[in-house]
């Protein structure tokens, strides 16, 4: 636990001492703010033309959460690519692996640090939602916002865990980022394969990262989605631990 915190502390320092965190957060805010403004004006225009027979605030909220998920897809590889690749490249992995600290503590410390970084990216978007919250009538149900953010967090957590694992496979950060991005796209694309009704389509649909996410944006905390995300995260963190362990055996 203490060594896990040591790793966590070091990674947080790494994110926020280097300009990486600030660039990532700034770009993320810029992009999400841009799209949020587009959606908002769109909703307002629609409301003027025809009396809103639809729940505009909830509509904006759902669109916006979906957008965050999409933008996150592009940003997470930047957050996770260095986690292990950089340690391997610098040789600092030798310090970690010869210290009395378990692989699982290294992996968890790094995972929670990247999750903290992700939360730091998300926090400013709460300002946009506050705008919707204070100026809409009727206000969207608060549990919808909470469920939506929980969804974003779980969805992002999956991508972080996957990116963390892929980063442990190489000492090249660019390769790690490319692998992570490619793997995300494939998981996303599973959604298209899930159109249909056969048993295969149902399995594929369950496996798609984005499908479960949509429930959360509707304000539904679905147990099956929760289990899916948590087991996804645990699975890839486990793989990362195994990958670190196997590094000892195959290192030449």
């Amino acid at each position: 636990m203490r060594s896990m915190y040591a790793i966590y502390r070091k990674e947080i320092g790494h994110y926020f001492v280097s300009p990486v965190a600030y660039i990532v957060v700034a770009l993320f805010i810029f992009l999400t703010a841009y799209f949020f403004t587009l959606y908002l004006t769109d909703a307002i225009l629609q409301a003027y033309q025809a009396p809103p027979d639809f729940d505009a605030p909830s509509w904006i909220l759902r669109l916006f959460l979906g957008l965050i998920a999409l933008v996150v897809l592009f940003f997470i590889p930047m957050v996770t690519m260095g986690l292990f690749a950089e340690e391997r490249k610098r040789g600092t992995i030798e310090l970690l692996m010869t210290s009395p600290i378990r692989e699982v503590d290294i992996v968890l410390g790094k995972f929670f640090a990247s999750l903290t970084m992700f939360i730091a990216m998300l926090l400013p978007t709460a300002i946009f939602l506050a705008v919707v919250w204070f100026h809409s009538d009727p206000v969207p149900p608060f549990r919808m916002i909470l469920a939506g953010y929980l969804g974003v967090l779980l969805f992002g957590g999956c991508l972080l865990a996957l990116g963390l694992f892929l980063s442990s496979l190489t000492e090249n950060q660019i390769v790690a980022a490319a692998l992570t991005f490619g793997a995300f796209l494939i998981l996303w694309a599973l959604d298209f394969g899930s159109r249909g009704s056969g048993p295969t389509a149902q399995v594929v649909s369950y496996l798609s990262v984005i499908n479960h996410f949509e429930d959360f944006t509707r304000g539904i905390i679905d147990t099956s989605g929760l289990i899916y995300y948590v087991s996804f995260i645990v699975f890839f963190l486990f793989l990362a631990v195994r990958s670190l362990d196997s590094m000892r055996w195959r290192r030449a």
Partner: peptide
Amino acid sequence: PEAPPVYPD
């Protein structure tokens, strides 16, 4: 190790 395992930042 051969290369000092330091974190530059």
